[in-house]
């Protein structure tokens, strides 16, 4: 999606701030998991409730599948985090972040009737922080900024094309 109008300085600043904060959150979550040799998504997946719980439980059945899920989760979080902070492959990073958050939300939907053994730090009904973070990424997806490494690449790409001509 292309930026079709110019934002005010405030708009740009806070859009970029929001993107950076979410990126930070992703990056740290990924780093914590990557550097903890005992971390596994197994407990979280098995704690899943709701209409998609069967799918999430099934990811734990085979050790090879579980290891892949763990790997994708750890590196997915790290790369999305870096992408959002640096504004690198921003559209793809934002989309991947939305997808990951949607999976987290659907695995533990805070709907009436579901209780989870993984404790949450707040009280939630249908809306939780994962959903809010997801919505924030949707906002970033439809309001892209020109701040980030993508812009540098764009300029570099254009000048390279010109040089070729």
């Amino acid at each position: 999606m292309k930026q079709t109008c110019d934002y005010t300085i405030g708009q740009t600043t806070f859009l970029v701030t929001l993107r950076t904060l979410i990126g930070w959150h992703f990056l740290y979550e990924g780093m914590v998991k990557l550097t903890n040799p005992d971390w596994s998504s197994a407990g979280y997946l098995l704690d899943s409730r709701g209409f998609m719980s069967g799918f999430f439980h099934s990811l734990t059945y085979k050790a090879s599948v579980l290891h892949t899920v763990d790997f994708l989760n750890e590196w997915g979080l790290i790369l999305i985090g870096l992408g959002l902070i640096l504004g690198l492959f921003t559209r793809f990073s934002t989309f991947a972040g939305i997808l990951l958050l949607a999976l987290y939300y659907l695995s533990h939907p805070p709907f009436p009737g579901f209780t989870f053994s993984v404790p949450s730090e707040g009280s939630y009904l249908i809306v939780n922080k994962t959903l809010i973070e997801l919505a924030a990424l949707l906002v970033l997806y439809v309001f892209p900024t020109r701040i980030g490494l993508d812009a540098v690449f764009q300029v570099w790409w254009k000048s390279r094309k010109r040089a070729v001509k």
Binding site: V16, R19, T20, G23, W24, L27, Y28, M31, L82, I85, L86, G87, R146, I147, G148, L149, D150, A151, V152, F153, Q154, V155, S159
Partner: peptide
Amino acid sequence: KVNRRAVLKGLATVPVLGVFAWGY
């Protein structure tokens, strides 16, 4: 000038990564 500006804007959030690395 435009390129310089674009590069500056492009690198605007890189220091955040530095702060992250320091905090981490």
